[in-house]
Simulated assay, not measured.
Amino acid sequence: MTATVNHHVEALTPQHVQGFAQLAARLADNIGAVVLGKPQVVRLALTALFAQGHVLLEDVPGVGKTTLARAMAATIRGQWRRIQFTPDLLPADVSGVTIFNQATRGFEFHPGPVFANVVIADEINRASPKTQSALLEVMEERTVTVDGVRHPVPRPFLVVATQNPVEMDGTYRLPEAQLDRFLVKLSVGYPSEAVEIEVLRGATMRSPEALEAVADTNMLGQMVAMAQRVHIADPLYAYSVRLAAATRNHPHVRVGVSPRGVIALTRAACAYALIEGRGFVLPEDLKTLLEPVFAHRILLSSDAQLRGVTSADVLRDAVQQVPVPLPAGHQPPPG
């Protein structure tokens, strides 16, 4: 678990911020040409990309989860691999395997599909927990250990996983440790009537394979580095910590947001601010990202689940309880 430190780094110039926002808009437009009517979902997915986080897309079949994942991969000029998770998939099918070479009389490592810049883990919750755990190390440390030898994966590295709701047949619930490694969990949702008609009109013409890459891995690496230079004031660090503490102390919560979750929120807020054309974070950025970053990290008590309480309800309570930090010199209204 590594924190992004924003202190004592060179400040971003307005030209840097404007250039970042323009390129981010081009990436979003490119993906939006295939994923119609979901600009905020695309923006949040790009936020995770620039914050060096991973994306979990959960929704019912047929709403465009895999299309979004493939469109993100096609927009970046780099290596991408797709892993179709099934009940009989083995951990070695994901990470790779060491094989004895008769010609050289030695063991050779054959990398698995996880060795790519963008890895699409399709229907990740259809695989067994043992296979799901093959992604734990690589998602956090960007390395794969096979037979005691560590192998680094290419950088930048992004996992875009899709899953169907856990109530559906043939699915295994993702363990909490793995959920915590996803920066954001997003739901694509059903399109509006107008968008669905537009999809039908051009169903055969819009395909992720037809997209042209807008950025390469070098450019993406520079954008990631810029996101780490965004200014976030100390009161906003405190605000993030207090929001997480509010989830831990909530009466309906069994396990609240971890410190990794707080780091994820501040990292995502820095990237989101740049996408919005700012070199500094506002409290509104943290509020916008609170549910996508925090909701999947909260474990509700059994009683809360029976009452129909959701993670979103807990986060709404946290936002109401924790006062928003005000700029220096501003006093809250009396009463």
Rank of each mutant, 00 (worst) to 15 (best):
residue 1 M to R: 12
residue 3 A to E: 13
residue 9 V to E: 08
residue 14 P to K: 12
residue 14 P to V: 14
residue 15 Q to W: 14
residue 21 A to E: 10
residue 24 A to T: 00
residue 24 A to D: 01
residue 27 L to A: 12
residue 29 D to Y: 05
residue 29 D to T: 10
residue 29 D to R: 09
residue 30 N to T: 11
residue 35 V to S: 04
residue 38 K to C: 05
residue 39 P to N: 06
residue 39 P to D: 02
residue 45 A to I: 06
residue 48 A to I: 05
residue 48 A to T: 03
residue 49 L to P: 01
residue 50 F to R: 00
residue 51 A to I: 09
residue 52 Q to S: 15
residue 55 V to Q: 03
residue 55 V to R: 03
residue 56 L to T: 01
residue 62 G to F: 09
residue 62 G to S: 05
residue 64 G to R: 11
residue 65 K to N: 03
residue 67 T to I: 14
residue 72 M to K: 01
residue 72 M to Q: 04
residue 73 A to W: 12
residue 76 I to F: 07
residue 81 R to M: 10
residue 81 R to I: 05
residue 84 Q to Y: 10
residue 88 D to H: 15
residue 88 D to C: 12
residue 97 V to Y: 13
residue 98 T to Q: 15
residue 99 I to Y: 15
residue 99 I to Q: 14
residue 107 F to E: 03
residue 108 E to Q: 15
residue 114 V to C: 06
residue 119 V to Y: 04
residue 121 A to E: 04
residue 123 E to N: 02
residue 124 I to Y: 03
residue 126 R to Q: 05
residue 128 S to R: 13
residue 129 P to G: 03
residue 129 P to D: 08
residue 130 K to L: 09
residue 131 T to C: 10
residue 132 Q to R: 08
residue 136 L to D: 01
residue 136 L to I: 09
residue 137 E to L: 09
residue 138 V to Q: 10
residue 138 V to S: 05
residue 142 R to A: 08
residue 142 R to N: 09
residue 148 G to R: 11
residue 151 H to W: 07
residue 153 V to W: 11
residue 153 V to L: 08
residue 154 P to F: 11
residue 154 P to H: 13
residue 160 V to C: 06
residue 169 D to N: 04
residue 169 D to T: 08
residue 170 G to H: 12
residue 173 R to M: 08
residue 174 L to K: 04
residue 175 P to F: 14
residue 175 P to L: 11
residue 176 E to N: 01
residue 177 A to N: 06
residue 181 R to T: 00
residue 182 F to C: 02
residue 183 L to N: 04
residue 185 K to A: 10
residue 191 P to Y: 14
residue 193 E to I: 13
residue 198 E to C: 01
residue 200 L to E: 03
residue 202 G to I: 03
residue 207 S to W: 07
residue 207 S to A: 04
residue 207 S to E: 07
residue 208 P to K: 13
residue 210 A to C: 01
residue 212 E to T: 15
residue 212 E to Q: 15
residue 215 A to N: 01
residue 215 A to H: 05
residue 218 N to D: 15
residue 233 A to T: 14
residue 242 R to M: 13
residue 244 A to V: 02
residue 246 A to G: 07
residue 248 R to L: 03
residue 255 V to G: 00
residue 258 S to W: 11
residue 259 P to F: 12
residue 260 R to D: 02
residue 263 I to Q: 07
residue 269 A to I: 06
residue 271 A to F: 02
residue 276 E to V: 06
residue 281 V to F: 07
residue 282 L to C: 06
residue 292 P to Y: 12
residue 292 P to T: 07
residue 293 V to G: 04
residue 293 V to Q: 03
residue 293 V to R: 05
residue 296 H to C: 10
residue 298 I to S: 02
residue 301 S to H: 11
residue 304 A to K: 14
residue 305 Q to T: 15
residue 308 G to M: 11
residue 318 A to C: 12
residue 318 A to L: 14
residue 321 Q to E: 13
residue 323 P to L: 05
residue 325 P to I: 06
residue 327 P to V: 07
residue 327 P to D: 04
residue 329 G to K: 05
residue 329 G to I: 06
residue 330 H to T: 06
residue 333 P to T: 06
